[in-house]
Design a protein around this nucleic acid. Structure first.
Lengths: 275, 275
DNA sequence: CAAAATACGTAACATACGATACAGCGCTCC
DNA sequence: GGAGCGCTGTATCGTATGTTACGTATTTTG
């Protein structure tokens, strides 16, 4: 079975005329980047004319050049997004690694943090630590526990931390307490909940700064969010995994704590005394 | 020093207007592929207009969109050519790693699963899937969200799943419903809560099978537990990490789901139909 | 060796793409 | 509360790009 364009080329390169073969070889040599550039650049790199390139992609079975490029991009996307399948060769059973679930989860975390700069985390932590206003947290059907988890920790080290629980109508009543100085932390992954989106929109209209934890496809709430954390959620299971978001949440909790300690927050010192 | 566009964005995202920030977040979320597509596609994905995308790349310092795309391609080329240096973010200065928090968490997970045999997980999953009795879940101050998370999932695929919330006196009243056929899942890490220990003991006396999620030093509840999952919790932070336990929980959820599907549970089939 | 078929490049064409001008809007700051 | 500024989207324009037609070169075959 042929799963990549590279294989497809290898399969048919024998039946190609000279010019197209040069195109094929050029593409393989720096796969797949040349294929993402323009026809003119591709043809120049291969030392042939533009039409030859087009005939080449046509011979591979594509209707036009765009379709060919889209395929390459999809392939690249699949590679970049799932590090586990990055290598063409099976990824070294290395100890026969027990759980594919665990492997996927670890990859998700690495990927999530790869797309998350230290600076971004520091910014969010600073915003949460800066105690001008209140902090609200809320989550969706399966992610609300993450909101609770974060709220439980933050509430220990600073005042005015509220987890929004219960019915939609209950949160809506809290909107009236929210303003520009406040922060709303929302967890929302597929399938995105309309109620949350509506709530986020209203909060946004009131000037509340939103920190969104979502998946890589971005909840529509991203539209209103000041900060977006996009975590990987794909695992070999019937469910999506929130583990990567969980780890980001823990990291943030740690950063906020550190920040407050550095600020010499009296609350922290008092707390130590109480232990 | 700034070596990748991703870093450049992270550096300047704070100083961007809302629309451009959405562009930035969209790009980071599926880096760098969206940036290789057309302006129209990029803008659609970000939910903004084309000019906003162009202003975004201009703000990053590029003369035009092509120059921006070329940079992305060069970056990608460098990345693809040397598979060893795959990471886009500063590739972990050998030990000093960007996020020691992440490294510690990943280690914790590997360690946790190393001490956790497949058979043990399978046994617990089987016990949870075998639907003779009820399933109760409860957690401590910071771990209760984990219990909620697990309950939220299990409740979807099987009946008689209850999360025990609220005051201690409230759970105690539920003891009367518990018997030999039932399972109680408890999350308890340092500092172990007396209330939970007392509750576990009483449940144990009633013949309830206890599945305990705890840390490597083992909560006193381990004494009464049928199954013990000991997760690593140490991280460079003021708090302990529950991430490893979280991943075990997700793994179990997946395993139970699979088991029930295999059993051909009618509920699962009906659920699919409802989607 | 001749004639036909295939391959390839040049040049003209049409489309879709990036770029720009402009107007409406919201926000901040007096 | 009003004036100014900055941000964003709509509509338009010019152009770079993919595409096609056609003529020449090259190879193949009888």
């Amino acid at each position: 079975m042929i799963s990549s364009i590279a294989e497809l080329i290898a399969d048919r390169i024998g039946a190609m005329p000279a010019g197209e073969r040069r195109a094929a070889q050029t593409l393989i040599a720096s796969y797949p980047l040349i294929g993402l550039k323009t026809v003119a650049e591709f043809s120049a790199a291969a030392g042939v004319s533009s039409p030859t390139i087009l005939r080449f992609v046509a011979r591979l079975g594509f209707q036009n050049y765009s379709e060919f490029q889209s395929s390459l991009q999809d392939e690249l996307a699949a590679q970049l997004q799932s590090p586990a399948i990055r290598t063409l060769n099976p990824p070294a059973p290395a100890g026969g690694s027990a759980s594919p679930m665990l492997e996927a989860t670890l990859d998700n975390m690495r990927e999530t943090f790869r797309h998350l700069s230290d600076k971004q985390l520091a910014d969010i932590a600073a915003r949460l630590a800066e105690r001008r206003g209140k902090t609200f947290l809320i989550g969706g059907r399966f992610t609300d526990p993450l909101a609770r988890y974060m709220a439980a920790h933050l509430a220990v080290i600073q005042p005015d931390v509220f987890h929004l629980a219960g019915q939609e109508s209950m949160w809506r009543d809290r909107l009236i307490d929210m303003g520009k100085r406040d922060v709303l932390v929302i967890f929302d992954i597929r399938r995105y909940q309309d109620s949350l989106v509506r709530f986020a929109e209203k909060a946004h209209q009131r000037g509340v700064q939103i920190v969104l934890f979502t998946d890589q496809w971005l909840s529509p709430i991203a539209r209103f969010a000041r900060h977006v954390i996009a975590g990987r959620t794909a695992v070999p299971s019937a469910w999506d995994s929130s583990a990567a978001l969980f780890v980001v949440a823990e990291t943030l909790i740690g950063a906020v704590t550190l920040q407050l300690e550095a600020d010499g927050a009296r609350r922290i010192r008092e707390m130590e005394g109480l232990r």
